Amino acid sequence: AEKTGIVNVSSSLNVREGASTSSKVIGSLSGNTKVTIVGEEGAFYKIEYKGSHSYVAKEYIKDIKDE
């Protein structure tokens, strides 16, 4: 089941290729951006990003809701 969340950062949140802080950064999301969460892996959520799937750190996503 998909969930949505809100990016909870003051500046921007790195979007990564994989579920690791050493993964390549492929983009960023600004605070209060709504994201669609399709899964989770460790400390990361797998999200829909620009037509494919990428990862963001869970600690920076708030207001998780089931869609």
Score class of each variant (00 low, 15 high):
residue 56 V to R: 00
residue 33 T to L: 07
residue 4 T to E: 07
residue 58 K to C: 03
residue 67 E to Y: 10
residue 27 G to T: 02
residue 48 E to S: 09
residue 48 E to W: 14
residue 38 V to K: 06
residue 24 K to C: 08
residue 45 Y to F: 09
residue 46 K to L: 10
residue 11 S to F: 10
residue 63 D to C: 15
residue 2 E to K: 15
residue 31 G to P: 15
residue 53 H to E: 07
residue 53 H to V: 12
residue 37 I to M: 02
residue 60 Y to M: 07
residue 52 S to V: 10
residue 64 I to F: 10
residue 47 I to G: 00
residue 1 A to V: 14
residue 9 V to L: 07
residue 51 G to Y: 04
residue 19 A to E: 02
residue 24 K to N: 08
residue 21 T to V: 12
residue 27 G to F: 03
residue 22 S to R: 07
residue 38 V to L: 13
residue 59 E to Y: 08
residue 11 S to L: 09
residue 50 K to T: 04
residue 41 E to R: 05
residue 35 V to E: 00
residue 3 K to N: 05
residue 10 S to F: 09
residue 63 D to P: 12
residue 65 K to P: 10
residue 2 E to S: 15
residue 18 G to R: 11
residue 61 I to P: 00
residue 37 I to Y: 01
residue 20 S to V: 04
residue 27 G to P: 01
residue 57 A to E: 15
residue 39 G to M: 03
residue 51 G to F: 06
residue 67 E to D: 12
residue 17 E to T: 06
residue 50 K to P: 02
residue 47 I to F: 03
residue 3 K to F: 11
residue 65 K to F: 10
residue 45 Y to Q: 01
residue 45 Y to W: 13
residue 26 I to R: 03
residue 17 E to F: 05
residue 67 E to F: 11
residue 39 G to L: 04
residue 36 T to A: 07
residue 44 F to K: 00
residue 8 N to C: 15
residue 41 E to F: 08
residue 49 Y to P: 00
residue 28 S to G: 06
residue 62 K to I: 15
residue 46 K to N: 02
residue 29 L to G: 00
residue 31 G to M: 11
residue 3 K to D: 03
residue 28 S to K: 13
residue 25 V to Q: 04
residue 30 S to F: 09
residue 33 T to G: 04
residue 2 E to I: 15
residue 57 A to F: 10
residue 9 V to G: 11
residue 33 T to Y: 06
residue 65 K to T: 14
residue 9 V to W: 06
residue 15 V to Y: 03
residue 38 V to S: 04
residue 4 T to N: 07
residue 38 V to H: 05
residue 64 I to G: 07
residue 10 S to V: 13
residue 12 S to E: 12
residue 28 S to Y: 11
residue 1 A to P: 13
residue 34 K to S: 08
residue 67 E to A: 13
residue 7 V to A: 05
residue 7 V to T: 07
residue 29 L to S: 01
residue 64 I to N: 06
residue 41 E to W: 06
residue 10 S to W: 08
residue 13 L to S: 04
residue 17 E to G: 06
residue 21 T to H: 15
residue 61 I to G: 01
residue 53 H to R: 05
residue 24 K to I: 07
residue 61 I to F: 05
residue 6 I to G: 04
residue 4 T to R: 08
residue 57 A to S: 10
residue 30 S to H: 11
residue 28 S to M: 11
residue 14 N to D: 15
residue 9 V to S: 13
residue 48 E to D: 09
residue 65 K to W: 10
residue 19 A to Q: 04
residue 27 G to N: 02
residue 37 I to A: 00
residue 23 S to E: 04
residue 63 D to R: 09
residue 22 S to F: 09
residue 56 V to W: 00
residue 24 K to L: 09
residue 62 K to E: 09
residue 39 G to Y: 03
residue 6 I to P: 02
residue 16 R to D: 01
residue 47 I to Q: 00
residue 59 E to L: 09
residue 21 T to M: 15
residue 43 A to R: 08
residue 2 E to D: 10
residue 42 G to M: 04
residue 29 L to N: 00
residue 65 K to N: 12
residue 54 S to L: 06
residue 44 F to R: 00
residue 28 S to P: 03
residue 30 S to P: 15
residue 54 S to Y: 13
residue 8 N to D: 10
residue 13 L to G: 05
residue 46 K to H: 04
residue 59 E to C: 12
residue 17 E to M: 06
residue 52 S to A: 11
residue 23 S to V: 02
residue 45 Y to G: 00
residue 57 A to Q: 14
residue 30 S to M: 14
residue 38 V to Q: 04
residue 52 S to Y: 10
residue 8 N to V: 13
residue 60 Y to N: 08
residue 29 L to P: 00
residue 45 Y to L: 06
residue 63 D to E: 15
residue 46 K to S: 04
residue 40 E to W: 05
residue 23 S to G: 05
residue 5 G to Q: 03
residue 62 K to S: 14
residue 52 S to E: 08
residue 2 E to G: 15
residue 54 S to F: 11
residue 60 Y to T: 04
residue 18 G to K: 13
residue 52 S to D: 08
residue 34 K to V: 14
residue 14 N to P: 15
residue 42 G to Q: 05
residue 43 A to C: 12
residue 26 I to E: 02
residue 19 A to M: 03
residue 13 L to K: 02
residue 52 S to I: 11
residue 58 K to M: 08
residue 53 H to N: 06
residue 16 R to K: 06
residue 16 R to I: 07
residue 18 G to T: 13
residue 22 S to T: 13
residue 54 S to W: 06
residue 12 S to K: 13
residue 18 G to P: 01
residue 26 I to T: 05
residue 1 A to Q: 13
residue 3 K to I: 10
residue 47 I to C: 02
residue 42 G to Y: 04
residue 10 S to L: 13
residue 3 K to E: 04
residue 9 V to M: 07
residue 14 N to K: 12
residue 13 L to F: 03
residue 18 G to Q: 13
residue 53 H to C: 08
residue 7 V to C: 05
residue 34 K to L: 12
residue 10 S to C: 15
residue 10 S to G: 11
residue 36 T to S: 09
residue 27 G to E: 02
residue 7 V to R: 01
residue 27 G to R: 00
residue 14 N to F: 12
residue 35 V to Y: 02
residue 42 G to F: 05
residue 46 K to E: 06
residue 57 A to P: 14
residue 10 S to K: 12
residue 65 K to Y: 12
residue 20 S to G: 05
residue 15 V to D: 01
residue 12 S to F: 14
residue 64 I to W: 09
residue 60 Y to W: 09
residue 28 S to T: 14
residue 54 S to Q: 07
residue 67 E to T: 13
residue 60 Y to C: 15
residue 66 D to F: 14
residue 16 R to H: 15
residue 9 V to I: 11
residue 7 V to N: 02
residue 49 Y to F: 12
residue 13 L to H: 03
residue 15 V to K: 00
residue 49 Y to A: 00
residue 15 V to C: 06
residue 59 E to Q: 11
residue 55 Y to C: 02
residue 10 S to E: 13
residue 51 G to I: 02
residue 11 S to P: 10
residue 41 E to L: 08
residue 35 V to M: 02
residue 45 Y to R: 00
residue 21 T to Y: 15
residue 57 A to C: 14
residue 42 G to H: 04
residue 23 S to T: 06
residue 65 K to D: 12
residue 39 G to P: 00
residue 40 E to M: 07
residue 51 G to R: 04
residue 60 Y to K: 06
residue 15 V to M: 06
residue 39 G to V: 01
residue 40 E to T: 07
residue 38 V to P: 00
residue 25 V to P: 04
residue 25 V to N: 03
residue 6 I to R: 08
residue 32 N to V: 05
residue 47 I to E: 01
residue 6 I to Y: 12
residue 44 F to L: 02
residue 46 K to C: 11
residue 64 I to V: 14
residue 55 Y to A: 00
residue 61 I to V: 08
residue 59 E to R: 10
residue 44 F to S: 03
residue 23 S to P: 01
residue 11 S to T: 14
residue 35 V to D: 01
residue 24 K to V: 07
residue 29 L to A: 02
residue 30 S to N: 10
residue 36 T to N: 10
residue 21 T to N: 14
residue 61 I to C: 03
residue 48 E to A: 11
residue 56 V to M: 02
residue 50 K to E: 12
residue 19 A to G: 05
residue 40 E to R: 03
residue 24 K to M: 09
residue 27 G to M: 02
residue 56 V to F: 01
residue 60 Y to H: 11
residue 14 N to V: 15
residue 37 I to E: 00
residue 5 G to A: 06
residue 48 E to Y: 11
residue 59 E to F: 08
residue 45 Y to H: 02
residue 34 K to M: 12
residue 6 I to H: 05
residue 17 E to S: 08
residue 20 S to R: 04
residue 20 S to Y: 08
residue 18 G to N: 10
residue 20 S to F: 07
residue 48 E to N: 10
residue 22 S to L: 10
residue 53 H to K: 05
residue 22 S to K: 09
residue 46 K to W: 04
residue 26 I to K: 04
residue 27 G to I: 03
residue 21 T to D: 14
residue 20 S to W: 05
residue 9 V to R: 06
residue 62 K to F: 10
residue 31 G to E: 08
residue 39 G to C: 06
residue 39 G to W: 03
residue 32 N to L: 09
residue 59 E to N: 07
residue 38 V to W: 06
residue 20 S to T: 10
residue 34 K to R: 12
residue 40 E to L: 06
residue 26 I to Q: 04
